[in-house]
Nucleic acid binder design. Structure first.
Lengths: 213, 213, 213, 213
DNA sequence: TATGAATGAGGCTTCATTCAT
DNA sequence: CATGAATGAAGCCTCATTCAT
């Protein structure tokens, strides 16, 4: 069982290729892996399928990766910017906290929708391999903590219901959004209209925290 | 690939045993399967482990089940009453909708906590086998629809925020509760104190729907 | 591996049932076995299928037979009269040897056609189990020897080509008829019209032996 | 159930190896398979025996074949030239049709005797697997048709009995030869002296078609 | 006689991983 | 760096046969 990539902080044996050709091959493998994983799922994806998609040999695969888990880590790594940190959109703070929440939710949901298949895959792998569950949990935790800080701030400013526990509320509401995104976009169960989902999520955040302003 | 049990409505080849002895053996296998699945996960669970746990032979296993999937279906089936429909607790309607929601959430979370490992397993299998995903989705849908009806009723009675879409809100809030339960009880990430979670969930439902009026 | 039935002369452990009920059950099993064997082939036929067809239990099967081979032997045994000794038809000897040959061929082919599926089965089993090959060979030998005697007689009477070896010619011509029957009736490759086949076989026998008379 | 080789025209998943080493290994497997099949029969032959005979691993087997059936197809394929179309020997046409028939029969029987075990195997497999029965039938059909054309030609030239149906007679006489070959060489029942068999077969063909004229 | 649950040996197959070229 | 043939551990599953009821 290979250790997984840099995303988890676990050191890997394989280093990044130095030559241009090597970089190109590695990149092709990561791209191919994403295609195959999204098409067949993590478990059904075979290394031969990935190398076939990348038009290289199995041997070449092992030049760059230690195994399935590690390419998967590389796939996640390659998508993380787009996926995990959708980049806070330009929201004038002076439009009020509701606007910030709405913008934040929209940004998250847009990114989620764009990477829906990968997110589904990530969920699958997280349920299979505890190391990826840890990756998922860490990223969720970071997201939750940021939201918790925001909520606490709003409470301190007297703008939010002071009776809710900021950490737990942030977690609950974040899970609400991410899970709804998962079901609607990844599983394709339910409405796929983005704005509809943004609206509900935002309303439930705003109401839930009693953002009176 | 075997078809899965009656839970899904899909017919299975193997019939229920008619004799007392057969019934006992089948039951032992289901119980053993639950133990092994919860301990090793669905993928790592081997049939030999299950039959060893049930102290019978592999052949006997195949007398009652067509494969791993089918025992798993039987495990779920055996736990469904306790798990999926925790039974509405006796809540005096006259204590108001908030009390009903709280009782409902508590009942759900209590049942979830009791079956936490199985719920985790179900999530895992649902991510692996689409037939079980369908089972999970169906049960979630039923739960969501029931809540949607309640919300609509409250809206009609002027007790809930009329601007939220009942279906989507019900879904979002249900997912919030179930996912929080999943993380806290199944993954054991976060607080495991039941009442704390009940409180937050209830508060967010109540606030979210603006039931304060 | 059980020994096979009386047809082969090999003694079997199981004796014929003494009670009326036992006889009925045994008969039902033999009948069912023929149905299942003809439908699924010897290899694919499972004992459960046979007992299901006979509406009795596996245990009952072993009351009467020692295994698959033995029921098969019983099936053959039950069909042998019709199959192996089609009974010499009433052919006035004075119509000449050609008429005798024709009548003989017709009788054989009629019986073959009637039991085509069983004959195919017998071929299959003979290729699988040497003991049944021995059964088949013995019966073919008997047939061949009878024909050889006839040929020799015709040669002695100056009616047949004296240059052919009676044994080998009898064998060759017998094989010709039986194999043609096999292909046309059992495999259903080629013409299934009985008289057409009778005509060709007879003509080739008559010409082949130069039955000038 | 794997599809069988190119002999049948059915496409196979596994491609021919490109490297020299691969070619050698595949060849070793085919050769080993023939040995094991001929020794143990198709049903008793285990893949381990074949790979042991070829001194390679089971995994290697699956690099080249999809299963037992497919190696068997390859074995047949490898032997087909020698077996199925023994190549018309150089027979001066002017020696008359009888000489052609004799030469043809001898060529066939010589080839048959050389591959007797394989022919027996082929018969066995044909009785077990309909796809191989189809292969056998096709090859027999081709042989029969060729002979039918010959007979018709002889009839047209007034050299053969015009009352026999060319197709059916060709089939009957071909079956006679092939079946006699099968019994004498494959089953080793009866005379194994080639010339004796050639003589009888030729005599019965010649007489049967009345080529004496 | 009849039943049918229990048995378990042993074949088949997959695919991540290695390594000689 | 690239190749792809070779490996073999590891699980699944079948079904004839037994035997206690």
């Amino acid at each position: 069982m290979a250790s997984i990539g840099s995303l988890t902080g676990i050191a890997t044996t394989k280093e990044m290729p130095t030559t241009r050709r090597g970089l190109r091959t590695r990149e092709a493998l990561v791209k191919a892996a994403r295609v195959v994983f999204e098409r067949d799922g993590f478990l059904n994806a075979r290394l031969v399928d990935i190398t076939a998609e990348a038009t290289c040999s199995i041997g070449t695969f092992y030049t760059y990766f230690e195994g399935k888990e590690e390419v998967f880590a590389a796939v996640i790594e390659a998508a993380r910017h787009d996926m995990l940190h959708p980049g806070m959109p330009h929201v004038p703070e002076d439009e009020g906290p509701a606007a910030v929440i709405e913008a934040s939710n929209r940004a998250y949901l847009v990114a989620y929708k764009r990477n829906a298949k990968l997110m589904k895959l990530m969920q699958q792998v997280a349920m299979i391999d505890p190391r990826f569950e840890e990756v998922r949990a860490r990223s969720a935790r970071a997201f939750g903590e940021r939201n918790a800080r925001r909520i606490k701030e709003l409470q301190d400013r007297g703008l939010a219901d002071p009776t809710v526990d900021p950490e737990l509320a942030a977690r609950a509401l974040s899970l609400m959004v991410s899970r709804l995104a998962f079901e609607c976009f990844a599983l394709e169960e339910g409405p796929r209209d983005l704005e509809e989902i943004v609206a509900v999520c935002t309303r439930l955040w705003v109401n839930g925290l009693n953002l009176s302003a």
